[in-house]
Design a protein around this nucleic acid. Structure first.
Ligand SMILES: NC(=O)c1ccc[n+]([C@@H]2O[C@H](COP(=O)([O-])OP(=O)(O)OC[C@H]3O[C@@H](n4cnc5c(N)ncnc54)[C@H](O)[C@@H]3O)[C@@H](O)[C@H]2O)c1
Ligand SMILES: NC(=O)c1ccc[n+]([C@@H]2O[C@H](COP(=O)([O-])OP(=O)(O)OC[C@H]3O[C@@H](n4cnc5c(N)ncnc54)[C@H](O)[C@@H]3O)[C@@H](O)[C@H]2O)c1
Lengths: 223, 223
DNA sequence: CGCACTTTGTGCATTTCTTCACAAACCCCT
DNA sequence: AGGGGTTTGTGAAGAAATGCACAAAGTGCG
């Protein structure tokens, strides 16, 4: 490509959701002090085909070296930059039940600039409790806390019937990215990014795949 | 997608992963004693477009009534049957840390025939502990217990560096469906179904979507 | 230096997924 | 019984994603 401005826009969404996987694969090589990888090695680690990896990277305008492969450090930097991971992303978790507490305690959360900075619940009997190094705040404090800490991502870990209310509260407070663990489709205004993780759906798909008539079918997201 | 590539049956995989969502939407209507829904109403509840819903259902050979809509009970039965949810699916959870305990305690797990029947960990200091109504078993017991209880689905909630070993143990014991929460691509033999849930990836995608340059982009799975 | 060898980047064909547009099918009312 | 009003089911078009095949671009050795 001509010029120094990489073609950052128009990255296909399927590609975007694989970039984090490549990034993790690169970290794996880095911890083994490997400084160069071929698309074949990296793809194997990431669980995709080499062709797909190269096509995906080509959308970033990323350049490896033909005949040699990719520089682990350089490609890591490019992916980190493309994903916007060279800044801090303060996270709030709403709903401190079983799942919320596991998430709040999750150390893997803290990698790559994601930091749990606030916890909320509406149950008076848990408000004020300490989970890790944070106190559980009430829902009434949400707007102020979100603004003061600059919360960028809200995680919803409440029961399904509260999830829409919580989403509305988060959006109202200025949060524009939501990770939802409740099994409902949230209605959100344009411009608010949302990803849902749905355990029941995953189990159902596995059940479908395990039916005798359909053994071996592949529904994707296997990795 | 390692290990899950295989022949294809006639229901498109994208459709299969939406069927559970439709099923949940139907339950929502059922609890409100609604007996008939149009594709428009059902699609709204599920967070998809009516056209998509109808196309998906058409793959099941499902029949609503033109000019009227779908019978909630009948469509529920058809979806339940298509997904293979009219039987019991004994589940085992391996790795009883923060996440594993949350999963074991998860009541939503028990719906639709999924029952957590066994818990495993390799840490001697937790083996024998009770979580809910089950005792945590050692990894040495895995093969026997899986066989005795007819475990159909294995859930991996161990750290990433143990996940492949655990997967091998599960597969060796006869489990052919795995739900993996560890952030690694598992290598699995042909014929073993696998779905991975990856929190870090979800956060990374949200970070990407929240970058100023890309406001408004949509990477899917938003609902 | 030039030739043999390796591995990337990408145009193109193929497959899969989504959306459109409308005929077919059904209910209900008169 | 027939006509008007709905809503489904689906072929066909369009969009997105995947996989193939190979030229381009680099390394390193003789
Ligand atoms: N536990 C799991 O393993 C698991 C796995 C996948 C998905 N989920 C989903 O995650 C969600 C939480 O699951 P859980 O097992 O932690 O449930 P839980 O009942 O243990 O915890 C829910 C928490 O949310 C709080 N809450 C309820 N309404 C609220 C509101 N309006 N505002 C603020 N807080 C509110 C409750 O006080 C409680 O502390 C559910 O939607 C569940 O379906 C859970
Ligand atoms: N905690 C979360 O919220 C969360 C969210 C998403 C994903 N994850 C992922 O889920 C996994 C578990 O997370 P966690 O926070 O519960 O970790 P954890 O450290 O709290 O628990 C891990 C458990 O696995 C057990 N274990 C380790 N190696 C084992 C082996 N070879 N065989 C059997 N058991 C073994 C350990 O004894 C421990 O009890 C990790 O891969 C993590 O990345 C966690």
């Amino acid at each position: 490509m001509v010029g120094t401005l990489a073609p950052r826009r128009d990255i296909p969404s399927a590609t975007v959701s694989r970039l984090p996987v490549y990034l993790r694969a690169l970290h794996e090589f880095a911890t083994r002090d490997v400084t160069r990888v071929s698309s074949e090695e990296l793809a194997a680690q990431a669980g995709v085909r080499p062709t797909q990896l190269r096509k995906d990277l080509s959308h970033l305008g990323s350049h490896g070296v033909r005949g040699v492969g990719y520089d682990v450090g350089r490609l890591t930097a490019e992916l980190t930059n493309a994903l916007g991971l060279n800044r801090s992303w303060p996270v709030a978790v709403v709903g401190m039940g079983n799942l919320g507490r596991a998430l709040a305690a999750y150390s893997g959360f803290a990698t790559e600039g994601f930091h749990v900075e606030a916890l909320f619940d509406h149950d008076p009997s848990v408000i004020g409790d300490l989970v890790g190094r944070h106190r559980i705040a009430s829902m009434g404090e949400l707007t102020d806390v979100v603004a003061r800490l600059g919360i960028a991502i809200g995680v919803i870990a409440t029961p399904a019937n509260s999830a829409q209310d919580v989403a509305d509260a988060l959006v109202g407070a200025g949060v524009r990215a939501i990770l939802n663990f409740a099994p409902v489709a949230l209605a959100l205004p344009e411009g608010v990014a949302c990803r849902s993780v749905d355990l029941a759906t995953e189990l159902h798909v596995l059940a479908f795949l395990r039916q005798p008539e359909r053994v071996g079918a592949d529904v994707g997201r296997g990795q």
